[in-house]
């Protein structure tokens, strides 16, 4: 974390839940007491185009954008987007891409893949489980909350092994 700021880049294509994933992490960071800035794209991107969201948290955050080569984490839901966004990672940064295929084979409902990757990411970040649960409650609809909490907990444990 450069100057105590953590940089995460999320990428996917419209409809994969990329923004929901970054939203959950954003709320969790806020609940953990950090200053948060998270940028995203709306509008045209909803139509199957590239979706990219940058999340930065720390004591004090200026730019809402992660600079190229400064990313601590990269969370991608699509191979082409992963290819495109790799440049954001700093040397030694954590790329969660290998977890995508693993998650896809483990989860029952393919719509839970974003929660799965958030669960994996969670084991690297300094927030209590309580913050994550509150974040999931804040962002997800009641109807799908419990199933997603389950996926999150499983992924969080799997990545700690």
């Amino acid at each position: 974390m450069k100057d105590g700021v953590c940089n995460i880049t999320f990428g996917g294509i419209g409809g994969q839940g990329t923004l929901t994933a970054s939203e959950v992490c954003g709320w969790a960071a806020m609940f953990a007491g950090f200053h948060v800035k998270k940028s995203e794209v709306h509008g045209m991107a909803q139509r199957g185009g590239s979706v990219e969201s940058h999340l930065r948290f720390g004591r004090k955050v200026f730019s809402p954008l992660v600079s190229s080569g400064q990313g601590d984490f990269l969370v991608c839901f699509h191979e082409e987007e992963h290819e495109r966004l790799k440049t954001f990672l700093k040397p030694g940064g954590v790329d969660l891409f290998e977890w995508l295929a693993k998650g896809q084979s483990e989860i029952k409902d393919p719509r839970h893949i974003n929660t799965y990757l958030v669960g994996v990411l969670s084991s690297y970040l300094p927030f209590d489980t309580d913050c994550w649960m509150k974040a999931l409650e804040k962002v997800l609809k009641k109807k799908i909350l419990e199933e997603n909490k389950q996926v999150f907990i499983e992924a969080r444990q799997a990545s700690k092994k």
Binding site: E23, G26, M30, F34, H35, V36, K37, K38, S39, E40, V41, H42, P64, L65
Partner: peptide
């Protein structure tokens, strides 16, 4: 756009 669509606490 960058201010409208950035989220902050």
């Amino acid at each position: 756009t960058r201010i409208s669509h950035t989220k902050e606490d």
